[in-house]
Nucleic acid binder design. Sequence first.
DNA 1: TTGAAAGCGATACCAC
DNA 2: GTGGTATCGCTTTCAA
Lengths: 339, 339
Amino acid sequence: MAVTIEDISKHLGLSKSTVSKALNGYADVSSETRARVINATKELGYHPNRAARSLRLGRTNKIGLLINSPIQFLSDYINHVMSGAALAAERFEQNLTLYTKEVVDAEELRRICRAREVDGLLLIFDPLQDAKNILVEEQMPFVVFGRRSAQAGVSFVSPDNYFGALMLTKHLIEQGHDRIGFMARPQLGLTNSDRFAGYQQALVDAEIPFDPTLVVETQVGQRDGSPAFLQLLRTSNPPTAVIATNDLMAADAIQSAHDHGLDVPMDIAIAGFDGLKISEQTRPTLTTVQQPLGRMGQRSIEILMQHITDNTLPPIRETMPVELIIRESTFLKIENDSN
Amino acid sequence: MAVTIEDISKHLGLSKSTVSKALNGYADVSSETRARVINATKELGYHPNRAARSLRLGRTNKIGLLINSPIQFLSDYINHVMSGAALAAERFEQNLTLYTKEVVDAEELRRICRAREVDGLLLIFDPLQDAKNILVEEQMPFVVFGRRSAQAGVSFVSPDNYFGALMLTKHLIEQGHDRIGFMARPQLGLTNSDRFAGYQQALVDAEIPFDPTLVVETQVGQRDGSPAFLQLLRTSNPPTAVIATNDLMAADAIQSAHDHGLDVPMDIAIAGFDGLKISEQTRPTLTTVQQPLGRMGQRSIEILMQHITDNTLPPIRETMPVELIIRESTFLKIENDSN
DNA sequence: TTGAAAGCGATACCAC
DNA sequence: GTGGTATCGCTTTCAA
């Protein structure tokens, strides 16, 4: 069943080396021989054995996708990333190997490196504290996806969280809000602080004093946006608008508001972050900051390939533009003024 | 950086063969030697090179996930499947390799087989017409996920579409509906006809005559449920309830109904299929038939592993139970009768 | 322009 | 119980 290079060579009465050279574009092969080889290759259905090639060449042509996240967070988000990554990987003739565990531990990571399972890794969501150190130690190229990394020497592709939050907050202020709740997810690290900075800058620009009671932190591992939202509602002077951590939590918040007899956006405006399909399907539809997840996925593979090809390359850090998408959940269309 | 079996053998003053045997549980190794080897293994951080192992053993310990679908259909659905598959694969110490293309063509499939990229394939969504034939020819084990296959000799894991549609239709009838629209996706093949059979059986059981104008086919590649839904509404005698092809299309339908000033479920009831997270997040929340996607993903990997281990195994075909989940989109709570 | 042979890192057969 | 060696399929150096 399996056709090897030896089958081709016997079939043509040539040596294995000549066949190999013909296939790998060496110059010292007569064009006639090359043609015969290529022909035989098609005729017999030869495809070089991946394992043998990997062993000989020392590269696997595989990229690992390390999705270090509880499955509940595996929303639409990851699908967009994966499809972008898959597209780019295909162009580079790389396979994508999936590593999805709640927690990929250090030992596992070492194994992936030492066993040479992949040529490089794309880290999606929070990498382990020491994961990056291990990868650096093992000289395994990697790119962090979706968030900035404070660590020196780390390449990443991140959305412009600061600007996104800034635009979103400005929009809410324009809609007349001056008490804007902010759902923070502390474990998001720089993502969180960037967004928070954007939020605060918008307040400063509008000369709205910052009120810390409007900031509520979601719990670690919390996937439901309702508790944080309700906590905001229960404060003595609740917000009239809320920025949720992401679209999924925003959808939960809308649900909660609805359950409590509140109209969105009349009684409370709610905005999300990410720009997933669900933001079009909530009722009211959701205002959100859209990340170019597909393109980010592509870019991160491209950057990773550069690192794989040239391991002396300095880190590449890209922040990609986001887009404010205004929908019903924050937009008071039934307006009274002339402004 | 990379530690090989030779490093271990030199370190201990043993031969490579002894080290290998110690690691692979051969009996003819003294327990003392075995202990020393295992110890050195940990000390030096040895992990066997995957490519070398694959080449020698003729297996890759990789399972391919062939996701043959336009990206738009890559919803939450695939995430549940993947996480189940990943869980099972991990237990079998298999890696998952992702093949996501709109269309994986025959040539590509042949390459995957001949190059021995994987030990087996999980086919998600519609496999190519001749894909299965190629795989059989190449003796590549595979399992079809999510749908029955009429082809003899093909293993699959499928939801109980017939029973799901039966229960769902009965529920709608109980809610007082006797004009129930049915959105069909012809390209779904047996999935479609099984559900349709369930739908019709429920009508028969309730002695409701079947009206073909209530069946509307969605277009190939159509992801938006609105057009089909609107087509149903525009008939001279429109339905009072609609069964959508899946939750995503149902969500679109709800949106459409809303846009046309119709209340769901008062003016029209809408039900989905699949039981994805979105069914909890629409407004009203969506009645649906929930598939155990995670467990189905697990099972399909388990079955695939059986085929990989024993290639004489007859096909395994499993139909997994589904669950009717009644939510707001079909449930008239504000009722008037005592029944 | 072609071919022989070494070697990538592992496993497994067969001597000893 | 241990070690030498062939082998998996490929690429690449070197010799012819």
